[in-house]
Nucleic acid binder design. Sequence first.
DNA 1: AGCAAGTGTTTTACTCGTAAAGCATATACG
DNA 2: CGTATATGCTTTACGAGTAAAACACTTGCT
Lengths: 178, 178
Amino acid sequence: MTATNGGPTGTRQDTVAAVVRQWQTVHPDLDTAPMEIIGRINRCAALLQQAEDAPLRRAGLSRPEFDLLGALRRTGHELTPSELARETFSSGAAVTKRLKQLTERGLVERRGDTRDRRVAHVRLTDAGRDLVDGILPEQLAYETGVLSGLDPQRQGELASLLGELLAQLEGRLGAPRG
Amino acid sequence: MTATNGGPTGTRQDTVAAVVRQWQTVHPDLDTAPMEIIGRINRCAALLQQAEDAPLRRAGLSRPEFDLLGALRRTGHELTPSELARETFSSGAAVTKRLKQLTERGLVERRGDTRDRRVAHVRLTDAGRDLVDGILPEQLAYETGVLSGLDPQRQGELASLLGELLAQLEGRLGAPRG
DNA sequence: AGCAAGTGTTTTACTCGTAAAGCATATACG
DNA sequence: CGTATATGCTTTACGAGTAAAACACTTGCT
């Protein structure tokens, strides 16, 4: 149904819809509803990452690297490697490696804690802060453009629904200590 | 603050909202709207992948591997490596590697094209088809559970909005040949 | 004090994806 | 016909993430 698709709003079909249709042909009894959300989230993430990181790459940064710098910038204070790991949702080992590179590039600095000599404190250098502040507006402008196919009201609805889903997921998957 | 957080609907805050709030404190003039969509999509994708692939891993499959098998299953016919690459949104090289492993595990078979000896045709073995058919219902049931924090109506709205966004992105980023 | 257990960070070995080069084959065109 | 170019797939070299072990240091117990 609604195979006619020639929507008045000019709505194109997305590839996930096609995939789901194929599955339903092969397994008509299957509840494919989750695919329409999860498949699309994954696909959107892949497409966005691919195209949308262009402004970052121009600055020689990967998104994980930018996320790390951004965490330092937005919190406004020093963070330890484990805090950075938590803040950027990556493993400690990954943070170690990224810090090594970012330190070599002069974007962050480390200093050891004087009380507990296991812990390090990481902060942005001036160059690092300037880089983040320079890139962020471009990045956001670019992202705005990428999303502009959706009218503002729907963007709002989408953001809100994603926020609800994410809150649920984080409550359930991120903190299953109960 | 808002440690009470007891929203009327019991809505928890998601981490992206917190991040956006931090940015707005540091750069009040910045339009952070795109983050609320893109940041959440990325974070949802990460969380879903992490937790949600459990049923797949039990079967010894990564999601990309399952996607490849699934493409063969849902189309119902043989596919060439390049068709598989297109269908699963991955590079040809990645497909080559995955095919090697899946062939060794006896889940897919290859045969050469008789006309054009450059091309190969890949199909599921019986074991491969059985594996997909066995896993898929579990996987979908699991996904349904993961999404169950959102009531069905909102799931529908979310799926629909994501579909619109994805169609736009695919139209713009996926086929910018105009 | 001295030692066991815990914590923060780094290192190691490994997996997986990618880009670019390479190989085999097909097609086009003089 | 034969050579140039294009196409389908694979290989190679490499970069990046991960889990688990290792390391360095602290804390708690006796």
